[in-house]
């Protein structure tokens, strides 16, 4: 099978992977690089469980052709915590505000929140809801997730 070698940065580190044209970025991250934080929830861009950042923008890795990651900077949930393992303020807020239940949507949710706060440091509640709308959660009913993003925004803006 034809393979194309792509070179990109994942969480700040260089990665080189020979990918098949039909692979998506999610497969490269999960299967080739063993970064299993991004989940496949639907495979059709409808649930957001596979959300990662490509050049700072939130995308569904399940719909992102692996080839297109060539030259990109990719951030996965594994890349958010600090060097000593201390949680990113968004991650900490999710834990402390009760925004995590089964956790399957959490990595994607955290990354959507990060993409938003990088773009809009102090978003309105409506902006938060809009940014997270593509991340489905069946456990929490979203309220504590929204509050966690608000708390993280305040902390990051201090």
């Amino acid at each position: 099978m034809e393979r194309i070698t792509i070179r990109f940065k994942v969480n700040g580190e260089d990665a080189t992977v020979a990918v098949a044209p039909h692979w998506n970025l999610l497969r490269v991250l999960r299967e080739e690089l063993e970064l299993t934080g991004a989940k496949e929830g639907c495979g059709a861009g409808e649930c957001g469980a596979c959300t990662v950042l490509v050049n700072g923008r939130a995308v569904n890795a399940c719909l992102y052709p692996a080839v297109e990651a060539d030259g990109a900077e990719v951030t996965t949930v594994e890349g958010l915590a600090g060097p000593g393992g201390e949680l990113h303020p968004i991650q900490r807020a999710f834990v402390e505000k009760g925004a995590v239940q089964c956790g399957f949507c959490t990595p994607g949710m955290v990354l959507s929140a990060k993409a938003l706060l990088d773009r809009v440091p102090l978003p309105s509640e409506e902006e938060i809801r809009t940014a997270l709308a593509g991340n489905l959660c069946r456990c929490t009913g979203y309220a504590q997730i929204i509050e966690a993003v608000q708390a993280a925004a305040e902390e990051l803006s201090r």
Binding site: R30, L80, V95
Partner: peptide, 21 residues
């Protein structure tokens, strides 16, 4: 008390292993 969920840190860092992983 409002104790945070004990596996919260694992879940927010993507380390939790589901059957998929």
């Amino acid at each position: 008390k409002a104790v945070p969920k004990v596996d919260g840190a694992e879940k927010v860092t993507g380390r939790t292993v589901y059957i998929h992983d």
